[in-house]
């Protein structure tokens, strides 16, 4: 690919999604963008670059951006954050929100929905304690295709084995074909999915008591991370919980949040008394 074409595509993708593509990634760009060119009836990426210079057509820019997202996800990914949610955050919120009896949870960059559905399954497991409570779980993603997949709740045999205990498969899924499983309606109805871009229109309105924003900030540069975390913080009460991915942190990135000692990947509002949580264990 010509350097100026790479520049054109990578700038567009960075502007629209935050994803930083370095020149070594140009093979990735080529393999992912080729199907987009074909879909738009163009013979080559060069033609597509040409078309983009002539006219910044929204549908084309959307497809290019979407094609460059990495959508890997799985149920109960990394396990620990979900145990933390079930064993620490939920019990804490049951006290802290006892007045309102309402908990709002946001899975930001939800991809194909496994994270949001994992949280919904936990809420069903804890249903006895949540009697009379309103729990809202909202998943958003930039990718239209992923939002559609998440809403459908249909997963391959491979996907339902990654991270999902078989007892949950039996309890919360129905087999719709030999190797296709669909999450049951009672779980599906607990979660809403919407398109939303973390850089612009989030697609949701706060406040959220719990925000899972995992494995997306890693793709962004520092100023973008800082900006996204600031906006997320604006949609949370100071005693809300932010959970990031294993390779992500707020340290050196945002002063809106602080680390909860002893709980890897868990953050609360900067002015919050985190001993509420870290002290409650032990």
């Amino acid at each position: 690919m010509k350097p100026e074409d790479f520049e054109l595509f990578s700038t567009l993708v960075k502007q629209r999604s935050g994803l930083v593509l370095t020149a070594e990634k140009s093979y990735l760009l080529e393999s992912r963008l080729f199907p987009v060119a074909r879909k738009h009836n163009m013979k080559s990426l060069e033609d597509m670059a040409q078309a983009l210079r002539a006219k910044r057509e929204e549908a084309l820019m959307f497809d290019i951006t979407e094609a460059m997202t990495t959508n890997e996800s799985f149920f109960f990914r990394d396990q620990k954050p979900f145990t933390l949610f079930q064993k620490t955050l939920l019990p804490h919120l049951l006290t802290a929100r006892a007045g309102k009896k309402q908990i709002r949870i946001w899975s930001a960059a939800a991809s194909s929905g496994q994270e949001a559905y994992s949280l919904a399954m936990i809420c069903v497991e804890e249903a006895a304690k949540l009697q009379g409570w309103k729990v809202e779980i909202i998943g958003t993603d930039l990718s239209r295709e992923m939002v559609a997949r998440a809403k459908g709740g249909i997963y391959s045999q491979f996907e339902v084995q990654r991270g999902l205990p078989v007892a949950h498969l039996v309890k919360y899924f129905q087999q719709i074909a030999g190797d296709k499983w669909q999450i049951k309606d009672n779980i599906r109805q607990m979660v809403q999915f919407r398109e939303g871009n973390l850089l612009t229109d989030f697609g949701v309105v706060g406040p959220f008591d719990v925000v899972f924003c995992r494995n997306v900030l890693i793709y962004f540069d520092l100023p973008t991370k800082t900006r996204v975390l600031a906006t997320i913080s604006g949609m949370m009460p100071t005693d809300g919980f932010l959970i990031l991915g294993g390779a992500e942190t707020v340290l050196g990135v945002s002063d809106k949040f602080k680390v909860v000692p002893g709980e890897h990947g868990l953050y609360m509002g900067a002015s919050c008394d985190v001993s509420l949580i870290s002290g409650a264990r032990g």
């Binding site: 045999q157 078989v166 007892a167 498969l169 039996v170 129905q174 087999q175 030999g178 190797d179």
Partner: peptide, 11 residues
């Protein structure tokens, strides 16, 4: 064996 009935039988 990948059908629900086998899984249930195994469990």
């Amino acid at each position: 064996e990948n059908d629900l009935s086998h899984i249930q039988e195994a469990l």
